[in-house]
């Protein structure tokens, strides 16, 4: 990675493609892309500034061995899971799933862009939800408000105060949830289930890479 010339030499060989096929969920589909560009044309986020590479380009970059660029990219995180690309892909690639797979892989390697809002929200949501088996909406919103520091958090919170008061009035928001969240019945069971799922995933990965 540090040696730039060796990385350049490695481009357009199949090493990164093989890595994606082995490590990324649905990654074995990447080679089937025929570069028609229908996915890129169908993506509703393609007017967003953060959308640095449309799916067609991501697939080409994988084949071109551009590992850093792909895994550092914002693109996969911008996916809204609308499934337009999957519906339209003439080669039937599960593009949405590949995007999520790539995002997940980049995250686990620690290469995903830091402070990427979608990634931040996803982490927050997951950590929030696995504690009690239920999403604590109050904590989740506050976590989002204070993403960019305390001061920005206060500003964000004040901007939303009317909504919060409205919810309070309508008894849709309980401030005590901040201290004691209500959870689901069998929290231990949930934790055991998640642990087991993680084990299975790791085992499968080990078999794939072996």
């Amino acid at each position: 990675m540090s040696n730039l010339s060796s990385q350049a030499a490695a481009q357009y060989n199949n090493n990164f493609l093989k890595e994606v096929e082995a490590m990324v969920e649905e990654g074995n589909w990447v080679k089937m892309c025929m570069q028609c560009g229908v996915c890129s044309g169908s993506c509703p986020t393609n007017f967003q500034a953060g959308w640095d590479h449309p799916p067609q380009e991501i697939f080409m970059m994988i084949r071109a061995g551009k590992r850093e660029e792909v895994l550092n990219s914002q693109s996969m995180w911008m996916c809204t899971s609308c499934y337009n690309c999957i519906v339209r892909c003439p080669r039937k690639l599960p593009i949405t799933h590949i995007m999520h797979g790539l995002a997940n892989y980049a995250h686990r390697l620690g290469l995903a862009p830091k402070n990427q809002p979608t990634r931040h929200f996803a982490k927050l949501f997951w950590n929030n939800c696995i504690q009690t088996g239920r999403v604590n909406e109050l904590k989740l919103s506050l976590g989002l408000y204070f993403k960019d520091g305390f001061k920005q958090g206060i500003i964000n919170g004040l901007a939303m105060k009317d909504v919060a008061l409205g919810l309070l009035k309508a008894k849709r928001l309980n401030p005590f949830e901040l201290f004691k969240a209500h959870g689901c019945k069998d929290q231990k069971g949930i934790h055991a289930m998640l642990k087991k799922a993680h084990e299975i995933e790791e085992r499968r990965k080990a078999i794939k890479t072996a």
Partner: peptide, 14 residues
């Protein structure tokens, strides 16, 4: 035939 080649891992670069 093209699809079969892709399945076999032939890389097509435009």
């Amino acid at each position: 035939f093209y699809r079969s080649a892709q399945e076999k891992g032939v890389i097509f670069t435009k």
